[in-house]
Computed example of a mutant assay.
Amino acid sequence: MKNSQILVLFLIGAVLTITGALFKITNEPKDWTTFFLIIGMTFEAVAAILMLLKLFKKKNNTDSFLDS
């Protein structure tokens, strides 16, 4: 995956997590607030794992990580 695709995954997760947290703060009694938090944090975790895998599988040391 490209860095921009991983960034999009992370941003989607951040938006979902913030949305779920705001609904939790306002004491919204719905079950979908927890669903937003779980799905958002899952997106962020997947993006972090993909970024770490990409960082450790760098082919040559002359290229910068951000160039790919």
Rank of each mutant, 00 (worst) to 15 (best):
N3C: 03
P29V: 02
I38A: 11
S68A: 11
I18V: 11
V15S: 07
L22N: 09
I6Q: 00
Q5M: 10
L16S: 03
F43K: 01
N3F: 06
G20M: 13
D63E: 15
V8N: 00
T26N: 09
K57P: 00
M1H: 15
A48I: 07
I6H: 02
A14Y: 02
T33K: 11
S68T: 08
F10D: 03
L22P: 04
F65A: 13
M1S: 13
K54S: 12
V8P: 00
K2R: 15
L50W: 07
F56L: 15
A14I: 00
I12Q: 00
I12G: 03
A45T: 13
L55K: 04
G13Y: 00
L22I: 13
D67N: 14
D31F: 14
S4M: 13
L55A: 07
M41S: 14
F56W: 09
I38N: 12
K58A: 09
D67H: 05
D67Y: 06
F23G: 08
L52H: 01
M51H: 10
I12K: 00
T17H: 05
I6L: 08
G20K: 00
F35H: 09
K58S: 11
I25V: 15
N60T: 14
F10I: 01
I25Y: 13
I38K: 15
S68R: 07
L16T: 02
L22S: 15
M51R: 03
E28F: 07
L50G: 09
W32D: 07
T19F: 12
W32V: 05
K59P: 08
K54T: 02
A47C: 11
I12M: 05
L16Q: 04
A47I: 04
L22Q: 08
T34V: 13
F36E: 01
N60S: 15
I39M: 15
G20T: 12
V46S: 05
N3I: 06
T26M: 14
I39F: 05
K30E: 10
M1R: 03
T34K: 13
T42C: 12
W32T: 02
I18T: 06
M1W: 06
L53R: 03
L52K: 00
L66H: 10
L66V: 12
S68H: 08
I18S: 04
V15D: 02
L37A: 10
L11H: 01
M51T: 03
I49G: 12
G13N: 00
T17R: 01
L52S: 10
F35R: 10
L66W: 13
I49W: 11
E28D: 09
I6C: 08
F56T: 02
T34L: 15
K59M: 07
F65I: 03
I38Q: 14
S4L: 13
L53N: 07
K24D: 09
I18N: 06
E44P: 00
F23D: 00
G13A: 07
T62Q: 11
M51L: 14
T62R: 08
A21P: 02
I25T: 10
L37P: 04
L66N: 10
K57Q: 13
K2D: 14
F56H: 06
L22T: 08
I38Y: 14
K58N: 04
A47L: 07
T19C: 09
F36V: 02
I18D: 03
V46Y: 04
A47G: 15
L50I: 04
